[in-house]
Amino acid sequence: MKAFCTQLFIQFKSDLRDKGVLMVYYIVPMAFYLIMGSIMKTLELDEGNSLILSITIFALSMSAFLGMPQSLVKARENGVLIAYRVAGIPSWSLPLSTIIISFVHIMIVAIIILFSAPYLYSAAWPTNIMLYLLSVAIVAICSEALGALISCLVKKQSTLTLVGQLLFLPTVMFSGIMFPSNLLPRPMQLIGAILPATQGLRLITMEGMQVLPLIILLGITILTFLISIELFRRISVRA
């Protein structure tokens, strides 16, 4: 346990030195936040807490679908996984530490947005901040589970970017982050319904947590994590 904590700490520090990681986890989401916040404020589009929610879900989807899988596949492709295995460091420690630290990055961004948006853009505070953060954490974990699945299914970094976009772009377009999903054609609404971001927007409301989206999100999380664990077990045997 102590060794794994050391690994988490080292990974967090080295992530903060990595320009690529900073770009995906912090710079792009924060730039998007500043631009969208200004637009929404100017056009007076913000209803309730939609700015905080939309930007947070955009940021966590980007981190989970584009950032975290990239780190995992790169580590595998470059021989980090095999270096750990031959040194007697458990193979699982690499994906698990990557997922946990990615989650930490996501929560940092979520907290920055949550606490700055009311001051910068007069966004409304959630009624229950702890419940709101718990909801964000659930959506983040679900998205990370999907990201982990991608990283197990895709062997090369070059392909990974494309596959990551296949999840990220529908998330942005069909989930209701950019515009209300009920304005979309029916097929697109159906595609959007299976995305964690869509369920996340339904889960996190001003009033609190909703049950059905919670069940769907937990179901996706458990299923994708179980498949990812089995796929990773096979990958690490081959590595």
């Binding site: 990974q11 080295s14 992530d15 030195r17 990595d18 790169k74 580590a75 470059n78 021989g79 980090v80 095999i82 270096a83 031959v86």
Partner: peptide, 9 residues
């Protein structure tokens, strides 16, 4: 091993 590496940063 020749083919191993560490995390870049």
């Amino acid at each position: 091993l020749q083919s191993t590496a560490l995390t870049e940063m």
